[in-house]
Amino acid sequence: MNVAIKKVPLYVIALILLVFTGYPFLYMISTSLKSRTQFFEKPYSLFSSFTLENFKSVFEMGLSRYFFNSILVSVIAVFAVMLIAALASYPLSRMKFKLNRVVFLLFIAGMMLPIHATLIPVFKLSQSMGLYDTVWALLGPYIAFSLPISIFILTQFMQEIPASLEEAAKIDGCSHFGIFWRVILPMLTPALMTVLIYNFIHLWNEFIFALVLISSPENMTLPLGLQDFKGEFSVNIPGLMAALTLASLPILVVYIFSQEKVVKGLAGGAVKE
């Protein structure tokens, strides 16, 4: 009994935090299921009505186009990053050469870099390459800015793979590329999962490059499209909430099904096992 009473404050704090973190989501989903009149009558009531009208209307307004663009650019960028970063991490973590440390630090320093310091030149570059206002303009900066954290995670992991495996492969006549492809890469799966999750979520949510490099609605990614919706939906709040719910859904669903992996992935290199 005494123990149970002692725990009351704990439950109170836990509940306050639960409401603080969770309520906005309930509110978002609940509002997305209301009609406009229902919203103005009872803006605070939770799950008082269930209409899918808003979801239909946001799709008609082009949300599916934003979805398509976001999936296209984040999937291509993430897989390119995984390959390019894994290739670069191999010599950086397992071969001795003069500039190793310098090259490594140059990449890692990118994690500290404010994107703003590259914004105008990247904007000019995309114009001169004829990519401005296409989803392809995003690929270059997305890959480049995902490299530092990816290389950081992968080199850390690669360093821990015992050298004896590599030696054995070398004796069998394996080239460096053979070692990378047949020995290192298969062992890298957990680290690559971290890289995949981290970068996918960050790129799915990326805003500033999209804002600067894309202007036509048909080329917008989800975050930019949502920002664009803001104006059109200033009078249709349930519609806006439906758009937000749909845009957040893929990541929330992935998270619900593989919570541990997503948490570990999002913490990036900061949490070791």
Partner: peptide
Amino acid sequence: YFFPFLISTVA
């Protein structure tokens, strides 16, 4: 508790 960190800053 982790939800807020998952969705896009724009959202």
